[in-house]
Design a protein around this nucleic acid. Structure first.
Lengths: 224, 224
DNA sequence: TAAATTTATGATTATTTTGTGAAATACCGC
DNA sequence: GCGGTATTTCACAAAATAATCATAAATTTA
């Protein structure tokens, strides 16, 4: 179990609903923040940097899907979508991407708590403060990368790419695999996009550039 | 013998759903087979011998549970059940119906791929990590080959060729067989091409060169 | 042993794949 | 909207790989 209290942002336009969910999660030891609509959610997200989001789909103005997409542009934070039963079937068509879990309303608090715990365990389970591979050091919480002690500024995608490759260090990864994991599954464009990001990443990694090996006919591999 | 690409059978009566799931898993490197109903599933299962099943619960005539039971009579293949209602899953926890994982619809591809990867890893272990034949050691995930501990750089085709021959070690393989498996079934080029690749492979294998025996009049055979 | 058959090899050509710069597009904070 | 950044697309050059082919070498057969 994680040491510090994990922060959870609950987004729902119904105060009563927020209150109920909040109560259960507080009792579970989590620190709760609330937002009553999509815009407030985005602000709260930026300010509090929560470790998990619980997003109601049905909200006035900006709905849950929009918020989800918006958040996903900047973060891989675990997201649980709460849908009303009737919508469920419709959403199947959209197969909306980006959320990690879906829960149908009305749900039992027990299920919710179980999913929250599971997601957080998955997300933070193996997250050490900072990890080193050769001359590369990565701190995920801080989103910082150092090469030979010198700090290197990476963009969002570059950072995600580096993390994914390091998580699978020593394994040859196809461009498809990389797209699946770094691009959150909602990308249907050119596979060569990966190449470009590898290029910029290599440039920024300087001396550690060839930790990212090209595996011809397959894709790339991170190897010290 | 376990080939490199794992085979997954998707069973769902909705074509669109199969397509979506399939797309993501293909990109992840899996080989996909599909079935639109329970009976077709059983046939496909027998024919293709998939390494994992994704089973939709709700299907006309023979439902997912029946298929699951039927498969379980003959195999311990990992099975992921997809149910429409998340409550259903909750009700079922504790019951051993034979499935290995349950996913509620609508689910995110991210979850699906994660579970598939995890299940397959669990089922096949990382034992397959790297395999040795005499002085030759092959790590397929890393796409690395060592001869007497020295790393040897192989091209894509050379690597595939070596893997195919090792998978069928001790068997004399015709050039036609080799073309079918290492090249595509729709390859109609010169059979002598195989010879050239065997030549370069032998060169790179150094001391292990004559693990690849010539079988005159037939083709080649890998033998330690 | 010579002829016939099959394989090995080197050289050449063709094809595929990747690296890269630059342009186009999307996105973000103001 | 605007300017700046990030991301994606694209096209072309460079590099690597693959295929073809002619010939040499090896093996089998008669």
């Amino acid at each position: 179990m994680p040491m510090e209290r994990k922060k959870i942002l609950i987004v729902d336009d119904e105060v009563r609903m927020r209150k109920i969910v909040s109560d259960f999660l507080v009792r579970e030891g989590y620190q709760i923040f609330e937002a009553g609509d999509g815009e407030e959610a985005l602000i709260q997200f930026a300010e509090q940097q929560p470790d998990l989001l619980i997003l109601d789909v049905m909200m006035p103005r900006m709905d849950g899907w929009q918020v989800c997409r918006e958040i996903r542009k900047q973060s891989n934070v675990p997201i649980i979508m709460v849908t009303a039963r009737s919508e469920e079937i419709d959403e199947l068509t959209g197969f909306d991407l980006g959320a990690d879990e879906y829960i149908a309303k009305p749900f039992s608090p027990r299920i919710l708590v179980a999913r929250v715990n599971a997601l957080l365990r998955r997300a933070f389970g193996n997250a050490e403060e900072s990890r080193s591979y050769g001359m590369v050091r990565v701190n995920r919480a801080a989103r910082e990368v150092q090469v030979q002690g010198r700090k290197v500024e990476l963009t969002y995608k570059e950072f995600e790419l580096l993390c994914y490759m390091m998580d699978n260090a020593g394994m040859a990864l196809t461009r498809g695999q990389i797209l699946n994991h770094v691009w959150n599954y909602d990308y249907y464009g050119d596979e060569r996009t990966v190449d470009t990001h590898v290029k910029t990443l290599r440039n920024k990694l300087g001396n550690a550039a060839d930790y990212i090996r090209t595996v011809r006919g397959i894709g790339y591999k991170f190897e010290q």
